[in-house]
Simulated assay, not measured.
Amino acid sequence: MRTVGDMLRQWRHRRRLSQLDLALAADVSARHVSLVETGKSHPSADMILRLAGQLDVPLRERNRLLLAAGFAPRYAERPLTGDALSTAGDAIARVLRAHEPYPAVVLDRRWNIVLSNRAIDAFLVDVAPDLLRPPVNIVRLGLENRGLAPRIVNLPEVRAVLRARISRQLAIAPDAELNAIYEELLAPGFEEAGRPAESEVTVPMIFRFGDVELRLFSTTTTFGTPMDITLEEISIESYYPADAETAAYFVKFGAEVLAGE
Rank of each mutant, 00 (worst) to 15 (best):
L185K: 11
T225I: 14
I181K: 10
L143Y: 04
I206Y: 04
L141Y: 03
V57W: 07
R195F: 15
V212M: 03
E256I: 07
H99R: 08
R2I: 12
W111Q: 04
F209M: 04
P150G: 11
P79Y: 08
L17R: 01
R168G: 12
G89Q: 06
Y239Q: 11
G254S: 14
V203I: 14
A173W: 03
L148E: 00
L155K: 08
R60K: 13
V201F: 15
N154D: 11
L80V: 08
L141D: 09
T202P: 06
T81V: 06
A197K: 13
W111F: 02
Q54T: 02
R62T: 01
I152Q: 04
N179W: 11
P43Q: 00
L107T: 00
R133K: 14
L115I: 06
A69R: 02
L214A: 02
L216T: 08
S44R: 04
Y239D: 04
R133T: 15
A248C: 00
L66R: 09
I92M: 02
I172C: 14
L155Y: 06
G89K: 12
A259V: 06
H13L: 13
N154Y: 09
H42C: 02
I172N: 12
Q169V: 00
R15S: 10
R208I: 09
L143C: 04
M1C: 08
V127W: 00
S116Y: 13
L124G: 01
R140M: 07
V57K: 00
V158C: 04
F217G: 01
D211R: 10
E232L: 02
I236K: 02
A69P: 07
D228F: 02
Y239R: 02
V153G: 07
Y102K: 09
V95H: 06
R195N: 14
G89H: 15
G260F: 05
L55R: 09
E100R: 08
E37G: 01
A68I: 01
L67W: 01
V125N: 06
L155A: 06
S218N: 14
